[in-house]
Amino acid sequence: MSHTYNGREYALEEVGLSIDGPGLYLVVGPNGSGKTTLLKIVSLNLRPSRGRVIVDGLDAWNTSKGEFAELKSKFVYSHDKPILLRGTFWYNLTMGGRLSGRVDEDFMKRLIEIFEAEKLLEKKSWELSAGQAKLCSLIRALSVKAEVYALDEPFNSLDSSNVSRLLAVLRELSNTKAVLVSTHFLYEGLLNSAKKTIRLINGKIA
């Protein structure tokens, strides 16, 4: 598949990716290499300018509305820059449930404990630091029940303790789910844990 935002330059060019079952799938590359575009396409948040996205044998962008909704519900995408709404950390965490209706509340509670986020729950979203906002966005995304999690630069803004915790969470999650992670920095052990690694440079596979 290929994608252009302005009709002239391609953010992604002739890139193919196959997600075959649970595991950690790494997408690495420098800034502007097309990682976000790839993750958004894979998670059905962006329709590619050319090419197809096949999910469970169906061409996702050429199905009925109902079928597309069904396929879409299998994916969760976490933004590089977190989208937080007005309200507390807790309000934003539970937005996943409000919007999707499919939340694993036990897993959410576990994640809150793992990341020691209990003290953040009543903080207003505009009072959060970049790292705290990122944590909120990640816990929210990971708590939604899905089959594929596409996490765009999940380690950005996190301190070293939280990076380690997140690595452990992702390794565990990837035993049962497909977890796509884009990153421009290869943390220790990340490469070894990956089932597949895609390297992008200037929108193409290196």
Binding site: N45, K65, A69, K72, I83, M95, L99, S100
Partner: peptide, 17 residues
């Protein structure tokens, strides 16, 4: 809408939010 789509939702119920 972008947030909802990222969490797997395709339509509806967003006006209040």
């Amino acid at each position: 809408s972008e947030l909802a789509a990222s969490l797997g939702l395709t339509s509806g119920g967003l006006f209040g939010i």
